Simulated scan of single mutants.
Amino acid sequence: MARKKRGSGDNGQGIDEWILTYSDTVTLLLTFFILLYTFSTVDNQKLKSISQAFQAMFTGQPGQSIIEGSGVTPDAPLESEVNPENMNGELYNVYEQVKAFIDENQLDASLQIKEDERGIILQMKDSILFESGKAELKEESTPMLSKISGLINSLNNPVIVEGHTDNVPISNYIFKSNWELSTARSVSVVRYFIEGKGLKPERFTAAAYGQYKPIAPNDNDENRAKNRRVNILLVVSEKEKKK
């Protein structure tokens, strides 16, 4: 007996399988967005990032990652304001020396003290050290860096110099991305300490993060300026906390 062909008259059994798959996918997406709305207040920027990620998934076009769009980076040490009351041991000693150095040299307007899980951070805005889009140190920045080199020389801690940018794309004949710019800037500072001031090279690490470790949302000029920074991290091997 000849088999019956599947068709539109076969009680709906002829519906193409791709339509069923598509309908399942749409249902799952709808459920996902309902859950987002149910469990939290929807952040428009995050929702836009999620939409872009799904667009990339279905169309194969480049899209912003969900993690990047939320302003969060995996395993990124979180910079925070210093709380001396929670410190003791080496961490407290390093903080005290950094605080005394800033007060003595009246550098409160140029340097901020921060901390993360690795140690104490001296944070500077990029405009103090560099012209926009450039990685050569301003001549007027070297007196301050010279003083910082004296502080570093008085300590034994390893030093990590970190370059950070905002999320505004850069592409010129020198730098093709924010990665290259932040790398060149951190290396410029390290070279100054080593070649200009004679500090031991084995103490230094140059690190670059581009736009991917922001400390503020990149949603206005003021916040973008906060993200354009250079961190000089004094590493404390065992970060002790008061109990």
Rank of each mutant, 00 (worst) to 15 (best):
A135G: 08
F33T: 14
Q52H: 01
N83Q: 13
T38P: 03
E162R: 06
F58G: 00
Y192C: 05
S8G: 13
D166S: 05
I50L: 12
V82E: 07
I15Y: 08
V161K: 00
N218M: 02
Q45P: 00
A53Q: 09
F33P: 06
D16N: 10
P169M: 03
V26M: 06
R228Q: 10
N86W: 00
N156S: 10
S149V: 06
E90Q: 14
K5A: 10
I15W: 07
I121Q: 03
L137A: 08
A207P: 07
R191T: 12
D24N: 12
I170E: 07
V94P: 10
A56F: 02
A206C: 11
S237R: 15
G198V: 06
K46Q: 12
A76E: 09
D10K: 13
Y209C: 04
N86F: 02
K197R: 15
R191C: 07
V72S: 01
N231I: 02
F130D: 00
K138W: 02
L107H: 06
G210K: 06
P201C: 10
D43G: 01
K134A: 08
K243Q: 15
E180V: 04
S110T: 11
I148L: 06
G198C: 03
S177D: 04
E115M: 13
N223Y: 02
L199F: 04
R3Q: 11
S49P: 01
E131P: 00
Q123K: 09
L30H: 12
T21P: 03
L137M: 08
S154K: 04
K213I: 13
S8K: 15
Q123W: 00
N157H: 04
L29D: 02
V187T: 10
E17S: 14
D108P: 00
T21I: 10
P169G: 03
E162S: 10
L35V: 10
I15E: 14
